[in-house]
Simulated assay, not measured.
Amino acid sequence: MRPRLSHRGFTLVELLVVIAIIGVLVGLLLPAVQAAREAARRMQCSNNMKQMGLALHNYHSAYNRLPQHAGGTAHVANGPDNWLMLSILVPMTPFIEQQALWEQISNPYVSSNGTNYPAMGPAPWNTGYDPWRTTVGTFRCPSDPTVASAGQFGMNNYGACMGDGINWTDRGGINDNGTDGNPTAANQYLRGMFKNRRATAFRDVLDGLSNTIMMGELCTDAGNREIIAQPVFIDNGDVFTNPTHAKCTTNAIDPQRPQFYLPSANLNYGRADQWNRGHRWMCALGMYTGINTIRPPNKESCQSHNSDGREGTHTAGSRHPGGVHVLLGDGAVRFITDSIESGNQNGFIDQPGIESPYGIWGALGTAAMRETIEADSF
């Protein structure tokens, strides 16, 4: 007689236990995988800023000055020019391995629609110019998922630091035709590494390059009413004297969802000319390529008047948890937490030469206020 062999399989209970164990392990592993991916994206973002730091230092070595924020060609009546509105990202292109793009911009160019454009291109709100619709990878943070639609301008996640002032940061006291507007008043508020329509150099940084922010992160607006990604537009000049104006910081924010604005907040969505933060890498207006060190990182921004071309609190922001990257004048990249000491948020620069009212954050934005910052304080 042959012995009968017994083939015993998994019972239903055993199978369910195995599935439950696998589910628990996946649940434990998934956050670790997501954290590892974000760490890689954050490292790539830091590398982007380091590349831009090298580009700025190489530019300074070549020309003995920094690229001018709000540079280009002055406006003339009925003339082909860019209204002195080009950001520092434009002259940086040949220093970040974008020589082909720079040659298109710096020479007369026939766009794909057959239009002839002059050297240095048209105004940064001209949608027919091919280079303005080009997205440069180095100017984008990999943690920011927002993408440009077909035909829109190229996006960016990094902006020039204009210090801790508000007034005159749109045009630097210089008229569109290049003549002086109000340089005396502008000098009171233009206290950062970059000053719109004014040439700056490392010799101007009396606070020390390692204590002065040169560039910082900003979020591109995805149209989701996020406070980190789009400023509130207020038709009220009080933003000049009160950075924490209620129309921006209290009445505009949803108390139930404090990371978002209320539906009643004026964000100027739906405009054909795309007034969205970070949506024009070539445009020097603070709305698109500027940050100031007034509101702490990842707080709300506020745009003065119902226009994209005016001053405001253009706050640094990112999609990295807990803070933003900044590029210091010496080329170092630091991660600044949201909790950095930011002083008196109701303060205002009402006279020349005063210490920044916005604490360590404000002092990091100023270039020549002789403010002492401890190395381990940020």
Score class of each variant (00 low, 15 high):
G79L: 01
I213R: 01
N182R: 00
E97R: 07
W132Y: 12
G128S: 12
C219Y: 05
P124W: 00
P142D: 05
D144M: 09
P118T: 02
S111H: 01
T146V: 15
T146S: 11
Q98R: 08
Y117R: 04
T146F: 14
L218E: 07
V147G: 07
T200C: 10
S112I: 11
A150I: 09
G137H: 11
D81A: 06
F202I: 05
P142F: 06
Q104E: 09
I88S: 12
Q98S: 09
Q188F: 14
A160T: 07
P94E: 00
I213D: 02
G165W: 07
L209N: 07
T169I: 06
A150R: 12
M155K: 06
T134Y: 15
T146W: 12
V147Y: 12
I88N: 06
W125C: 12
G181T: 05
A199D: 11
A160D: 05
D170R: 03
N187C: 11
N113V: 14
A123V: 14
Q152P: 10
T127L: 13
G173W: 10
C161D: 15
K195M: 14
P80C: 01
N113E: 13
R171T: 13
A77S: 10
M85S: 15
M215N: 09
L89W: 08
A119D: 09
T138P: 11
T138H: 03
I96T: 10
C141G: 09
T115N: 08
T138L: 15
G216H: 11
P118D: 04
A123W: 10
S143H: 00
A199C: 00
V136S: 04
T179D: 12
M162D: 14
Y158W: 15
C161R: 06
F194V: 14
T138V: 15
F194A: 12
W125T: 10
Y158M: 14
G128R: 09
A148C: 14
N107G: 05
A185K: 05
A148Q: 12
M193R: 08
A160S: 13
R171D: 13
K195Y: 08
R191D: 15
R171N: 15
A185W: 08
R133S: 13
M155T: 10
F95G: 02
S210H: 03
R140F: 04
D176K: 11
P183I: 01
G178E: 01
M162W: 00
Q98A: 06
T93H: 01
T220G: 02
P122Y: 02
C161G: 15
Q98I: 04
P118N: 06
T169H: 01
Q152Y: 10
N187A: 15
D204H: 04
I213N: 04
G178N: 03
L101Q: 08
L86H: 09
Y189R: 02
C141M: 03
N78Y: 06
I105G: 06
D144H: 04
L206M: 05
F202D: 11
D130K: 01
I88G: 08
T200I: 07
N116Q: 05
D130W: 02
W102T: 14
T115D: 07
P118S: 04
I96L: 07
R191G: 15
N196R: 03
N177I: 05
P183A: 00
L86R: 08
